[in-house]
Write a protein that binds this DNA or RNA. Structure first.
Lengths: 224, 224
DNA sequence: GTCGATATACGCCACATGCCGTATGTTTTC
DNA sequence: GAAAACATACGGCATGTGGCGTATATCGAC
């Protein structure tokens, strides 16, 4: 971001739990000028190791990885290694998630069903110190000042920061457990679990365990 | 399978709703000898068009595509174009799904988190007229005769053929709708919906709407 | 024409859930 | 050290759900 315009190659960490997808992305990146993949990770633990061990410039992060509780992970990494820019790569196009990712410190947000060229555009934008949102989700953030959004933003919820406990309980609800089962597993009262769940539904604007489950699955939490 | 050992290149159709993933797979395949991708499809409709229009040898099918009601689609395509061999590519490793896919006529079953080399191995096996299952799911089918399975197969359910109505209701349950809402939408009694749901849970060995939802989402049904 | 599968519909019961309120102790933040 | 956020816990009430049984109409297969 200072004097190294485009001499030194940009280094990447690839984080995606699908080896086949990683392989494909590596191929894609290797066809670009001055780019190289220096590390890969298939789960959150491996990723944490790699981000501290390597000195990569960019992290291409699949939000659907096991052991990666989504958004929270972004802020964790930003705190740990501030110089590492994060590009989120996911199938999730919910406005809620996009906003949360950006506010957590992601520099880019790409969707898996987007135009492959967007990867290059995102890298370029971020190298210049900017941020990049995939065209498919750009409407989600309201454009801040732009000419005029074509679609109204559906739900105006704040980025919905979940507490640690809430995330924990969301993950268990997502596995189809009842309040009682969750309570047993956590060693607390079923009534407390219910309260947490109520708070979750309030924050996320959902209205049933099934919707919570769907939300969690789409968010990439493990479901079995 | 007859005289064309390896002169004519093998032609592929890629079906995956994620353009980025398709791009990566295309790269991967292009690095192999005598392989070429002749068509791509991002949804079920486009795919149906391509399978009839082109005369490809192999279909690499992501089971998570929108508009593709999973397994059912495999038998549909097999009926339509019997010469086209199907390799399923999915993140779903449920024994139930694996067995169902194979019985529906899939020649291969690869998982997205599997070893990328498996793609080559699968193609080779299928070219010889065999079938190929990813190592991560091979246990699911019981090996039929094999030396000895390392893990017992957890649930012994038959491949679970769902009726049209049941699939319809599964999709709606998966969106978090209550029995009443589903009944209104279909113009039938809520009690009937409940019965269908009970039958579904019986067939799939699930025990709550949340589990049904998780199942449907993993299966690739739309959830919003 | 009968049999089986499917779709339809109802009732009962125990239990879980969603929504409301209140309360207390702990931890984090300012 | 005060204020805010969080985790804990309880109660009531209307509704939904899961598991059970029963019953009828339709339709395609044999």
């Amino acid at each position: 971001m200072n004097g190294d315009h485009m001499n030194r190659p940009l280094t990447f960490i690839l984080a995606d739990d699908h080896a086949l997808v990683r392989e494909g992305l590596k191929m894609l990146i290797s066809t670009m000028d001055n780019m190289s993949v220096v590390a890969e990770a298939a789960d959150g633990e491996a990723l944490l190791e790699q981000v501290t061990k390597t000195r990569a410039d960019l992290l291409l992060l699949d939000l659907g990885m096991p052991g990666v509780a989504g958004i929270q992970f972004i802020s964790d990494i930003r705190e740990l290694v501030p110089r590492l820019k994060i590009i989120v790569l996911t199938a999730n196009i919910e406005p809620r998630t996009v906003r949360a990712a950006v506010e957590a410190g992601a520099s880019g947000y790409l969707t898996k069903d987007g135009d492959p060229e967007e990867l290059g555009e995102a890298i370029e934008a971020i190298r210049k110190g900017g941020t990049y949102l995939a065209r498919t989700v750009r409407f989600a953030v309201g454009e801040a000042s732009g000419s005029g959004r074509q679609h109204a933003v559906p739900d105006i919820l704040s980025p919905v920061p979940l507490t640690r406990r809430e995330r924990e309980i969301l993950a268990l609800v997502a596995q189809g457990l009842t309040a009682r089962e969750i309570a047993e597993r956590l060693g607390i009262s079923p009534l407390t679990v219910r309260k947490h769940r109520e708070n979750l539904m309030g924050k996320l604007n959902l209205h049933s365990a099934a919707e919570l489950t769907a939300y969690a699955v789409r968010l990439g939490l493990p479901t079995a």
